[in-house]
Every structure is written in structure tokens, then in C-alpha cells.
Design a protein around this nucleic acid. Structure first.
Length: 592
RNA sequence: GGCGCGGUAGCUCAAUUGGUUAGAGUCCCGGACUGUCGAUCCGGUGGUUGCGGGUUCGAGUCCCGUCCGCGUCGCCA
């Protein structure tokens, strides 16, 4: 047969009635009625009911069709026919028609699949099996839907930037290790024995060099690698839409991304996103939400009560206030109904994982008074002040964390997220896009007793903060911006330093002396000395975009061949051992 | 590395306080059936309870260790 198929399983409809068609696909399910047999034939375009029935189908073919099982691959030739009245299936896009078989060929058999491509959500096999037999798992309609969404998102991005004159430039995968930042994946060099390449954590330095080379708008769909522990939204290799622009400030970069967000939100979700996207400074985000990527789909904001706490006789509050810590709270509106004493205990246990030593709480009674096991430590007047500060109304649950600033942020952010989800304070299908800007340049590493770059060492401080570099680095703010979708960091970028002097200053502040800087970044410093344009850019986490656009809660379902929590590939068995000959060539001996 | 959840038939799950021969649905195998679409009906096969040790008259169940998967803290410029 010359033509294996004339149509796909998703395209036949009323228009084709009476025509002959040849379909190929997988047997999704079969229904044997003795005299005749139905199969649902599936490919990535859809499903079509195929009928083996006299008089259309010759007896020999009907006999042959009896051996069909799930996932057999078949070719069927037949006539497209309208289904008998009352027999249409509204669940299928092709449900008004069926293919009445006249010719048939079994293209391949299948063993009984351990992972059923047609399993419904509650009978989904465990993930271990799905990953081991990924070729079967990827046949499932939701997986195909997600990967097709991913394709449209990436294509949408590529088209968008191409229209804006960005050019796609590939950068090396084999690069050089930079000790700052995440752990590198290393690749040993055979030729330079004892030396290693590192897989890129991002194409950061290459894209800056491209700006210095005059390619003023660069874009790349770039694979990135970080050898850190995995999470539901984190894989060791992931994909970024990476871009860089010359002669721009932060507003220009955010403006470009605003346009992309609007385009893709319209294209994929039918949403009209209002531009410009809302912006919030890092300081405001930390104060109101305790996190640099706040979920703005709901309220439940943090409220500072340190001044009131200082006036109480409750030692936990007063001592924290006296020692420079913070007492902050959230008001779970009408939360007493949702959280019993036991429920509050569970919340207390939950925040303990984030370093909070306890969770103080008050219920707001019918008369507006605050009740709690700790209420006796507060005067009625003070309780009233707390109530006013937190806008307390009957039925509300007030939850306090008293600790150093960082702990109150972590614990209350986690608590806010948990309560927001548990009390269903937002529509899970809602989408919220925003920017968080003006991040601190540096974070003080308490263990190593030194400043570390919050973003990366090439980030430019705000113009008005240049003097703070030498005076008070902790107050210095960066030209940095993170794109936040539903409480997830969906992208981040900065305007870079283009002045070699400032770059040196930042290096020395980070404890990178001239010699080390020369060794690691000499090429960048030299390039800065040959007419580097002001430049900046951003990288968007494509896997996360797909996850959020698809409404999924884990990133593995957005990646065709993901890794497990132990960073292994259950299908191929990677990482695997290698021949001793290979190790010998590389001069590597394994310690056991 | 820490904490938590899970691992029982090919698959999804159940199994009371430690107690008879570890069950159900589905898949698979055989049979019946001319319109189903989660087809239906009848019959049947199928088990190293992840692995190793221990306690016990007796372990899927309790204890110790270990492997694997998931979530999370640390980590992730």
C-alpha cells in the first residue's frame, strides 16, 4: 500500500460522510459483540470509532479483528458513515461518524501495557511506572496536550522575538566552571587530563559578550543545568528562554516581556492581560507577603505588630521586640470555622519547619473580643489595639510569628500559602502576572561571614546606589526584576554592569580578589574595556511557564523525559556506570 | 543530610487489635452475544506483600536496616 493513511483520527466528521478513508493508529479500546466489533482508534489528533461489521466488513477481517487488543497498531480502510440515529457520541469530536471497515492490516502487536494510555485520572499508574515506560505514558491525551501546549508557547516566544529583530545565537554547552552559584555538572576533558568543563547554569556570560560584540538583541531557547536537589518545580536540566538587549534600561526589558505575556495569555488562555503588568519592589513584597515572589491571587497580607507586641507582658512577644526581631501576623478571615484547636496545632507544627518556634493565635469572638490561651498576658486595651491593627471581625483567626525578620518572612509566607490553598481563597484557574523589582544587590552569608550576590555578580546597582557599594552594601539595590506568575518565579533578569571599574568594585566586595577575578572572568573584564554597551536581559523558565499555563502542579509532567528526585532517568537508567577503559582515558579513578 | 507519605496480582486498591487458604475491580485467557462507546453476561489463570534481618506459637500488619518513588527543609548566584 502506498499511502499508509489518508486522514488522522481527529479529523473525520459529517463533511466526510460517504467518502473512503484510511486511518492508522493505536487501539485505545475494543468492544467485541460477537457478530461485530468496535474499536476506538487513537492517534495524537484524536479518536475515531472503527466498526468491523457485516455486510461492509468481509468475514475474514471480522475474524482477524477478534484478536485486537489495547495498543495494537493498525491500519484500517473504510467508508465514513453517519452513525445510526441516537448513536452519536458527544464526548468525541468525531462522534457523529464512524469508519466502516472494508480493509485491514495489523501493523504491530503490543504486549499488555503496564501503563494504560487511556487510564482515567484516579487510576493513573504510579509515577515510577510512568517514568519507566515513558513511551506509554506520553501516549496519554493529557501528556500530549501538555507537550503540544509547550510547543505553542515556545513557538510563540520565538515568533515574538523574531519580529522584534532578536537573533537566535547558540552558546556552548561545554563551558568553564564558576564556583559562585549552584553546583556545576562537570564533564572531564580527555585531552587536558585533570581539567573539567562545566555544563552551563545559564548562558549568562556568553550573552553579555554577544552584546559587547554588537549583536544588540539576542535570544535563545537554552538548556541549563544545575546540580542541586530536585523539587516539584525544579529539574536538574531545564529550559530557559534567554535574551539580552543593548542600550536598554530595566523598563525596556520588562516592557518587551509584558508584550510577550499579553500575547501568550491571549493565545493560550484567552485572557486580556492589562499592561503594563503591576510592579512591586522587593522591600514591599517582603513586608506585605514575606516572599520575593508573592502569590497575588489572594490577600491574607502580613501585618507588622512589633510595636504593639513590645507593650505586652507576653514574654515571647516582648523579648523578640526588644531584641530587634519582628512580631508579624496574618488575619485568616473567618478562619475559626476552618481551623479547630487541632487544626491550629497542625499549623504550628507546619511553621516549625521554617524555623518558627511557635505560632501565637487569637480567635475573634462574636462580641469582637480576642480569646486565646495567651490572652491573659495582654491588657484588654492592648488586645483591642491588636484587633484594630489586624481589622479583626467575629470569626477571624489571627496568627502571629515572633522571631527574627527572616524567620517571620519564611514562616508567614509558608503559612499564607497553605491557608490560602486550604481555605480556597482563590480560583485555581486564575492567572496573575506581576513584577518584583529592585532586589538587594547583596545578601550577607552568616556562615561564611561575607557578602554574596543576590542575583549574580554582574548585576548593576541602581544609579543612585553607587555610593552605597562602598558605604552600606546591604542597602544597595539592584536593577533587577523577577517575573512572578501565581507565586512562582517565572523569570528573572537584570541590567548588567558595563563599567569595568564598577565590576571590579563589586568583585572585591564579594571577596573575589583581582587575581581570582582575572582567572575566572578576565575575558569579561577585558571585553568591558573595549567599548561595552549598556545592556541587560532576562531568562524565562519555560518549563514553569508550561506548568502554570497548563494548571499543573509538577514540572515533570511538562517535560518529555524528566528525571526523578534522585536525578535519574528511569527509562534509560541514566546516570549509568561506564567502561573502565573510558575512565582510564580520562585519568579518573572511582573511590568506593 | 533531616522530616513526612507511599511500595500487596500486569494495573488501581482493600485486608479490624498480629490470627483460617491475602480479597475486589480492571487487565489477561476461554466461552456467549448484531450497535457498543467504562459494552454486557458466564467461567478461569494470576501473589517472593520492594529487599534483608529480628520479635512471636503465628507478621502484609510490630522492630531494625536497606532500596525505590513522591512531598518538603537545607540547597537552588
Amino acid at each position: 500500500m502506498q499511502v499508509l493513511r489518508t486522514h488522522t483520527c481527529g479529523e473525520l466528521g459529517r463533511l466526510h460522510i460517504g467518502k473512503e478513508a484510511t486511518l492508522c493508529g493505536w487501539v485505545d479500546s475494543y468492544r467485541d459483540h460477537g457478530g461485530g466489533l468496535f474499536i476506538d482508534l487513537r492517534d495524537r489528533y484524536g479518536m475515531t470509532q472503527v466498526v468491523f461489521n457485516p455486510p461492509d466488513t468481509p468475514p475474514a477481517i471480522i475474524e482477524e479483528s477478534k484478536s485486537l487488543r489495547a495498543e495494537y497498531v493498525v491500519q484500517v480502510i473504510g467508508r465514513v458513515a453517519e452513525r445510526p440515529s441516537g448513536m452519536a457520541n458527544p464526548k468525541l469530536s468525531t462522534g457523529e461518524i464512524e469508519l466502516r471497515v472494508t480493509g485491514f492490516k495489523l501493523l504491530n502487536k503490543s504486549q499488555t501495557p503496564p501503563v494504560s494510555p487511556n487510564a482515567n485520572a484516579q487510576d493513573l499508574p504510579n509515577e515510577e511506572l510512568r517514568l519507566e515506560h515513558r513511551y506509554l505514558d506520553l501516549r496519554r491525551a493529557v501528556m500530549q496536550k501538555t507537550l503540544m501546549l509547550r510547543d505553542r508557547i515556545v513557538k510563540g516566544m520565538r515568533d515574538y522575538f523574531a519580529e522584534l529583530d532578536f537573533i537566535d545565537v547558540e552558546t556552548p554547552i561545554l563551558g568553564r566552571s564558576t564556583p559562585e552559584g549552584a553546583r556545576d555538572y562537570l564533564v572531564p576533558s580527555r585531552i587536558s587530563r585533570g581539567a573539567f568543563y562545566a555544563l552551563p547554569q545559564s548562558p549568562q556570560l556568553y550573552k553579555q559578550i554577544l552584546m559587547m560584540a554588537g549583536y544588540d538583541r539576542y535570544v535563545q531557547v537554552a538548556r541549563c543545568f544545575r546540580d542541586e536537589d530536585l523539587r516539584a518545580d525544579r529539574q536538574p536540566e531545564f529550559t530557559q528562554l534567554d535574551l539580552e538587549m543593548s542600550f536598554v534600561d530595566a523598563d525596556d526589558v520588562m516592557g518587551v516581556i509584558d508584550g510577550l505575556v499579553a500575547k501568550l495569555a491571549k493565545q493560550e488562555l484567552g485572557l486580556d492581560v492589562k499592561l503594563p503588568l503591576p510592579r512591586m519592589t522587593y522591600d514591599e513584597a517582603m513586608e506585605r507577603f514575606g516572599h520575593d515572589a508573592p502569590d497575588l491571587r489572594f490577600g491574607l497580607e502580613l501585618v507588622d505588630c512589633t510595636d504593639l507586641a513590645a507593650k505586652s507582658d507576653f514574654r515571647v512577644f516582648s523579648s523578640v521586640a526588644a531584641s530587634g526581631g519582628r512580631v508579624r501576623a496574618i488575619n485568616a478571615k473567618l478562619g475559626t470555622e476552618h481551623y479547630s484547636r487541632r487544626g491550629i496545632d497542625a499549623l504550628t507544627e507546619y511553621v516549625a519547619a521554617f524555623g518558627a518556634k511557635g505560632l501565637a493565635w487569637f480567635r475573634v469572638e462574636e462580641d469582637g473580643s480576642l480569646s486565646s490561651t495567651i490572652a491573659k498576658n495582654f491588657t484588654p486595651e492592648l488586645l483591642k489595639e491588636f484587633g484594630i491593627r489586624l481589622k479583626a471581625e467575629p470569626g477571624d483567626l489571627l496568627l502571629f510569628v515572633a522571631d527574627e525578620w527572616k524567620v517571620t518572612c519564611k514562616a508567614l509566607h509558608a503559612l499564607r500559602s497553605k491557608i490560602g490553598a486550604e481555605m480556597k481563597l482563590y480560583d485555581p484557574r486564575a492567572m496573575h502576572f506581576s513584577w518584583v523589582v529592585e532586589f538587594p544587590m547583596f545578601d550577607f552569608d552568616d556562615e561564611e561571614k561575607r557578602w554574596v550576590a543576590m542575583h549574580h555578580p554582574f548585576t548593576s546597582p541602581r544609579d543612585q546606589d553607587f555610593d552605597l557599594l562602598k558605604g552600606d552594601p546591604g542597602k544597595c539595590r539592584a536593577k533587577a526584576y523577577d517575573l512572578v506568575i501565581n507565586g512562582s518565579e517565572a523569570g528573572g533578569g537584570t541590567i548588567r554592569i558595563h563599567d569595568p571599574g564598577i565590576q571590579q568594585t563589586v568583585f572585591s566586595l564579594l571577596g573575589i580578589d583581582e587575581h581570582t577575578a582575572e582567572q575566572r572572568f578576565g575575558f569579561l573584564l577585558r571585553a568591558l574595556g573595549y567599548g561595552a554597551p549598556p545592556h541587560g536581559g532576562i531568562a524565562l523558565g519555560i518549563d514553569r511557564w508550561v506548568m502554570l499555563f497548563a494548571g499543573l502542579d509538577n514540572i515533570r509532567d511538562c517535560i518529555a523525559f524528566p528525571k526523578t528526585q534522585r536525578a535519574s532517568d528511569l527509562m534509560t537508567g541514566a546516570p549509568g556506570e561506564v567502561e573502565s577503559k573510558q575512565l582510564k582515558e580520562l585519568g579518573i579513578r572511582i573511590e568506593r
